[in-house]
Write a protein that binds this DNA or RNA. Structure first.
Lengths: 192, 192
DNA sequence: GAAAATCTATCTATAGATAGATAAAATATT
DNA sequence: AATATTTTATCTATCTATAGATAGATTTTC
C-alpha cells in the first residue's frame, strides 16, 4: 500500500504514530495515545490499520518513500558530492535537535515486534540510503573534494552508522551541538 | 546498589533481563518472560526488584560496572592505543554477532520509560566510555600510530556513535561482516 | 524460632482487538 | 430530480489477554 492510497485521516494517524515512535518507541505507545492526540476513537484507528503490525508497515513505508524523495531533491538542489552529503546530514541533525530518532533507527531496536514485511522495509531503507551515499561520495571524489576511498561500500556503511548512532547518543547527551559534531567529524574523515 | 550486594538469584534475574533487553528492548519483555526462562515466579522477581524501574536501574548499573571493568582490563592487557581501541571494538563486534544491541544503546531508545536515575546512568556510560576512548587515542598519537586529531573530544564522540549505530544497523543488515567493516573503517580514519 | 526467599492467589489497569449500531457520503435506480 | 441502496467512516460497548504489582501463606535457611 503506497502512501498516496491513504486518505487524510489515515495520514493523520500515521503522523501521530510516527511522532510517538520516534520519541518513545513502537512498543511504548498505544492506540489510546493516538486517540488522545487526535480525538478519534481507537476503534476508528483499527478501521484503517486493523493490527498494530499493519500500522508499523504503513508507517515505515511512508517514511521511506518520503526520505528517498528528500534525497532526490537534494540531488537536484546541490551540485557537489560534499554539498549533498552535508544536506543529508542536516536532515539527521534536525531529527536529533527534535529529540527524536530516525524512525527506522527506532524500529530497528524494536525489530522483533515487527512483521517480516517491516523488517524487509528497514533493510531496504539502509540499503538504498547507503547506495545514495556511495553515489554522493563517488561524485565528491570526482569533484576533487573528497579523498579516494579504499572501499566505497564500507565508507558509506560507516557514515550511515555514525549518523544513526549519533542520533541515538544525542538523546542522552543533551548537548545540542553533539550531533553536528559527529556529522562534521564523519565528513571531515572523507575530505582531503 | 552496586552489583556485589546482589545475591545469586538477583544476578540470574538480571542476566535474563539483560539478554531480553538487548535483543527485544526494555518495553518488549515482561516479568513473565523472566519467569518462563528462570522457573521462578514473577512475585519472587518483584521481591528482588519491586518495580520494573528498579530492575532497569540495577541492570544498567551492573552493565556499566562490568563494561568499565572490561575497559580497565584492556588497558592492562594491551600496550598501544590502537591495540586498545581494537580490543574495545571487538566487544562491540561480539555484541552485534549475537544479534544484540549494546544494553545502553537499547535503553537509549527506550529512554522515556526509564526513571531519571537510569537516564543519568546512561549519560555516565557514554561520558566515561568517550573519556576512555580519548585516552586511548591520545596514547595512540603518542605511540605514533594514530594521526593528530583536531578535536579529541569530537573524534571520540564520533567513534562511539559509529559503534553504537553499527550495532543498530547490523541487526537488520544480517550480513555478518558488517559490524567489523564499520569498526575497521572508523579506526582506519584515525590511522596515519 | 527468626529471617529470608518463594509461592499461591488476586487486584487494577491497560493493551490490542472485535462486534454491532449509526451516521454520512457516494452511487445506482426509478 | 427524488429516492433507494451501498460504501465508507465513525462511534459505543465489550472481550480477552497481559501487564505490573501486592497481600499473605508457606517453605527454606541460618
Amino acid at each position: 500500500m503506497a502512501s498516496h492510497d491513504l486518505n487524510d485521516t489515515a495520514h493523520r494517524i500515521l503522523d501521530v504514530a510516527e511522532g510517538l515512535t520516534q520519541t518513545q518507541g513502537f512498543n511504548a505507545f498505544s492506540y489510546k495515545d493516538i486517540q488522545a492526540e487526535l480525538g478519534i476513537k481507537t476503534s476508528s484507528i483499527h478501521y484503517y490499520f486493523p493490527t498494530k503490525s499493519d500500522l508499523a508497515t504503513a508507517m515505515v513505508d511512508r517514511y521511506i518513500e518520503r526520505f528517498l524523495e528528500a534525497l532526490e531533491e537534494i540531488d537536484q538542489k546541490h551540485k557537489t558530492g560534499l554539498a549533498k552529503l552535508q544536506a543529508m546530514g542536516r536532515i539527521f541533525v534536525g531529527v536529533a535537535a527534535a529529540q527524536k530518532l530516525c524512525l527506522c533507527g527506532m524500529l530497528t531496536s524494536d525489530v522483533l515486534s515487527l512483521p517480516q514485511d517491516g523488517l524487509n522495509e528497514l533493510r531496504r531503507f539502509y540499503k538504498e540510503t547507503e547506495r545514495w551515499i556511495m553515489k554522493a561520495i563517488t561524485q565528491g571524489i570526482n569533484d576533487g573534494e573528497l579523498k579516494d576511498s579504499t572501499s566505497l561500500e564500507d565508507t558509506a556503511a560507516h557514515l550511515l552508522a555514525a549518523l544513526e548512532g549519533g542520533m541515538l547518543v544525542a538523546r542522552v547527551r543533551k548537548d545540542s551541538g553533539y550531533m553536528q559534531a559527529v556529522l562534521d567529524q564523519a565528513l571531515d574523515f572523507l575530505g582531503k
